[in-house]
Design a protein around this nucleic acid. Structure first.
Lengths: 364, 364
DNA sequence: TAAATTTGTGTTAGCGCTAACATTAACAAT
DNA sequence: ATTGTTAATGTTAGCGCTAACACAAATTTA
């Protein structure tokens, strides 16, 4: 077992540590000075060659090239950033890395940033606003060239940090949510109220007069709750019977199974809407195992359009959101904002609205 | 549509850009100098207060505290890193962020690093060794205090970078694989050969005399292939009929369904082992839909023990790997190595071996 | 041919922070 | 009273890089 705290670790140790320079500083890697000496030029010429090779004489360029290869030079980005004030790193804060909900968006973000030579600094909050604030504070220390946060709900401290960052010319973007009345920051997402309404309307139109929304068991999953509230309000307005059931905070599929069992006891509704596909999938499988006919006895509607939904029996109806695109568009908007800022203009926070779509399969 | 390339973006622009300082450098944020002036001390005292408050007089500390709050100072980590040569950032390179295989390990890594005040720089390679090398090169520019890569297979260039980094005193760790003969870098993982053998032995012992390994359709998923080779070799050595079927590179569950359909045409084997649970789940559902009895007609064994496996009907047998722990232990070993390095010792690469376990459910 | 321009490179200073040492004042020990 | 000793703060220099300007040599232009 490894445990740094009580230091019961037995690491094999090599007594010979490579000698560093006399001050004890530096990292032993080649610097521009190393390269410059070898190529017989000054560091400035090396620096110039790195960023705009066409500005140095072909002959010199050749020597520098060789010196670069021989020394295995890698630029020190911290020093570069300190000198230019421009960082090639973007920070993103998401509730959870493991949850497949955000993973694809992060992938889209990462891919698009990488394609433009930017790196991704990632932090997760485990759905805690407090940890979000801490993480924002931590990543801002790296002076990233952009900050991506999840959702519209933040602690006062976090909001203040975000506003300050934005005032100082850092693009700040909220993903996975959209509220047209809130123009404080750029947004890339969709309205969860609209999704809730869409789900309710759909079920009502299909003729179900008795519906339940199975909400996420994660207390801080505000977006799921918002979909649920809107769902309930819409169904209620349509004059049909509606209830919200709170799932447990267990693994989602397990929670879905339990939710179905619990609702069976009080009498199954005619249709169920779920905070996400994984809850729905669990309930779907539970129903299947018990021989409950879907959608004959109970209809089911998920959210997210995860791979499992199209694979479950004859298919789970759901609402599709382009998760990867959220990340991709976020990166694109970020890049556009950076470009504009370089050109000396200040950007007004802009909204990029995605359209969730109903995917009708055989569960409704 | 946003597309920075053909610049058809129409960003709303605010003409008033906040004024920066005359040199055009700097970022507008408060620095230690700002705080120092306000508190009536030098920057050194502020710096000292930030790192070891007990060294400054209570009265001064009080003034600095106030100045910190008033200015909203956030330390510039690049500058700190440049001065100390120590970075609080760890870089991790994984094949895919979206794939749930690695997501949990990254979560474990992130959680544990965060708990120790370290940040995570994340890059993904989409299973390409070439991109891995690029990404390693890119992240090394940030002088992270540790480098985490996935697996034992790397391009020559990548290997050279990793070795160089390690020589310069940066912990380099390989996760998700283990080979006792390869002591070049620290490893946190398990032997995929052992897993392949474990799966084959189990099926043989259960009496299946005719087995197929359904391999991942991702060409560069070397670890899946390695499990497959070992599976085939072990089954062959046990004198039973064995074949390897290459799945398509579609979405895994879909690929699993197709694999079952394809094998049906040439005659179903008595048992199927899969490169991962998602392939298995697809095949499981396909079999279910067609009324093929599991395990009566065909037995199925997955790999990974993902949530879906315990939820599928009566349960999918699989091999469980503690994915989260890989990340957690990786962070712990990293921290231990850092500590040792600080104490002036050089670490010999150490291996942390995890034990995959068979989870027997009703599919075998 | 002299002046104007271009081309290629060097010099200086500074980004924000901290290691190492220097300095001062206050107090204790001889 | 003189000499340590400690506590609290300041000074200097440098981490690796680049903006801004300076300068010489090679070219063009008038």
């Amino acid at each position: 077992m490894i445990n740094p705290k009580n230091s019961s670790i037995s690491l094999e140790v090599d007594p010979e540590l490579p000698s560093r320079n006399r001050t004890g500083r530096g990292h032993g890697r080649a610097t521009q000075a190393t390269v410059a000496k070898r190529a017989g030029v000054t560091t400035m010429t090396v620096s110039r060659f790195m960023r705009s090779p066409q500005l140095v004489a072909p002959e010199t360029a050749c020597r520098i090239s060789a010196a670069l290869a021989e020394t295995g030079y890698t630029p020190n980005k911290q020093a570069g950033m300190l000198a230019t004030g421009q960082s090639s790193m973007v920070a993103a804060i998401i509730p959870s890395i493991a949850s497949s909900i955000f993973a694809e968006s992060v992938q889209g973000l990462s891919d698009t940033l990488q394609a433009h030579g930017l790196e991704l600094l990632l932090a997760s909050t485990n759905y805690s606003l407090e940890r979000e604030e801490e993480q924002i504070r931590a990543v801002l220390g790296w002076s990233p060239s952009g900050l991506v946060v999840t959702g519209r709900r933040h602690s006062p401290g976090a909001l203040s940090l975000m506003r300050q960052a934005q005032r100082n010319g850092m693009p700040v973007l909220e993903i996975w949510d959209h509220d047209p009345t809130d123009k404080a920051f750029a947004q890339i997402g969709f309205s969860h109220r609209a999704v809730g309404a869409l789900m309710a309307t759909y079920l009502v139109e299909r003729g179900y007069r008795d519906v339940v929304y199975v909400d996420s068991g994660v207390r801080e999953d505000f977006r799921a709750h918002e979909r649920g509230q809107s769902f309930a309000a819409t169904a209620h307005a349509a004059g049909i019977s509606v209830a919200v059931y709170q799932a447990t905070s267990l693994e989602p599929m397990q929670a879905g199974r339990l939710a179905l069992q619990a609702l069976q006891k009080t009498g199954l509704p005619r249709a169920m809407a779920f905070a996400n596909d994984h809850l729905a999938a669990g309930a779907f499988m539970q129903a299947f195992d018990q021989g409950i006919d879907i959608p004959g006895k109970v209809a089911m509607l998920g959210f997210g359009d995860f791979p499992i939904s199209s694979q479950l029996g004859a298919g789970l109806s759901t609402v599709s959101v382009k998760r990867y695109d959220i990340g991709r568009k976020c990166a694109e908007l970020l890049l556009a904002m950076q470009q504009a800022l370089k050109a000396g203009r200040m950007i007004l926070p802009q909204h990029e609205v995605l359209q969730p779509e109903l995917v009708c399969r055989s569960s409704t």
